[in-house]
């Protein structure tokens, strides 16, 4: 809406969207390159953000560089709009860019995410910004950066399958459930960030632009709209997503990613949608799960999500 006309709707102590114009230009150049070479990791001159590494500094720099005053921002953390991390980042951009914010996936023009892709299919024109702790999918097996760069350069990706081989040999199936490596546009193997592999198929042919920012590692990569994204697998162990025997306890959805929530110390638990907006939206539209009527369960689900802060990307 007419944000530019409304003079200085953000905190003028800061440049618009916090970063200076030079920096934003530099990051945009990196983004253009990343979009031009889908899946390729572009180095960029990462800046300090008023937040510790591991809390989404890479994603925030990308968001700051693409966001305009007329944009509407949604921030999710593990699918939830209301965790400390999500709330802080949303509040940050409200203050330094004066943008409108929302929890509704369909209303947002820019969505910054940590660990999930919204359940509701994205549309053309939307931008999905991922926070990435470790951009290098080969890193666990090959610690040398010079070597991993060559591996990408020459498309030597045998090692990636070694990682999956190890899974099968140890667990009998590919046990990697998040950061599941993908082949982008038939050329670059890419880490999808720690999203559950449940979300991997959503990356394929997505209508939105997907941008990835790794703050500590200072890398940016991207998937342009309508791009082939294939999860790696073996002929005799094809890629599969997680399935749950139960439906969401609150909204009854059977096709969403579920979180397990412990309700008491007597073994009580429930499975609810990790995408809180998706779940709330369904409930509003009258969908009900088996425990939807239980106010204690509802309250508990909310509070446990909020307190259960980041762990693995904070290292």
């Amino acid at each position: 809406m007419n944000a530019v006309a409304k003079k200085a709707s953000w905190d003028e102590a800061y440049n618009f969207a916090y970063l200076d114009e030079q920096t934003k230009r530099m990051i945009r150049r990196a983004l253009l390159k990343a979009v031009a070479i889908p899946g390729y990791q572009v180095p960029f001159g990462g800046r300090e953000m008023p937040l510790a590494y591991g809390w989404g500094t890479g994603g925030m720099q990308v968001t700051a560089s693409v966001i305009g005053p007329s944009d509407t921002l949604k921030v999710i953390d593990q699918g939830a709009d209301d965790t400390t991390n999500a709330v802080s980042i949303r509040r940050f951009f409200k203050r330094v860019a004066g943008v409108a914010t929302t929890e509704a996936t369909e209303e947002a023009s820019v969505i910054q995410t940590r660990h999930r892709i919204p359940e509701k299919p994205l549309k053309e024109g939307q931008v999905l910004v991922y926070q990435v702790p470790q951009p290098e999918p080969l890193r666990k097996l090959e610690p040398r950066e010079t070597e991993t760069r060559k591996m990408h350069g020459y498309a030597e990706y045998g090692l990636m399958h070694v990682r999956l081989y190890e899974d099968i040999s140890r667990f009998g199936h590919i046990a990697t459930t998040y950061s599941y490596p993908v082949m982008v546009n038939g050329r670059y193997v890419m880490s999808p960030s720690p999203i559950p592999k449940f979300d991997n198929p959503k990356m394929e042919n997505n209508k939105a632009i997907q941008l990835f920012g790794a703050g500590r590692e200072k890398r940016i990569y991207a998937i342009p709209p309508y791009t082939r994204v294939k999860s790696l697998d073996f002929d005799d162990h094809p890629f599969e997503v997680q399935r749950w025997p139960q439906a969401c306890a609150l909204c009854g959805a059977r096709n969403s990613y579920l979180d397990e929530v412990v309700l008491d110390d007597k073994g009580g638990r429930m499975f609810v949608c990790s995408d809180t907006h998706f779940c709330a939206d369904r409930q509003e539209k009258g969908h009900r799960g088996p425990m939807a009527a239980d106010p204690a369960a509802r309250a508990f689900a909310r509070s446990s999500e909020t307190s259960e802060q980041k762990e693995d990307d904070g290292r």
Binding site: G158, D235, H237
Partner: peptide, 18 residues
């Protein structure tokens, strides 16, 4: 693992059958 070490070269030249 030992098996993974031996299998790496096979996977590097395109073996995709576990």
């Amino acid at each position: 693992s030992a098996g993974g070490n031996v299998g790496e070269r096979l996977m590097a030249i395109g073996a995709r059958h576990y």
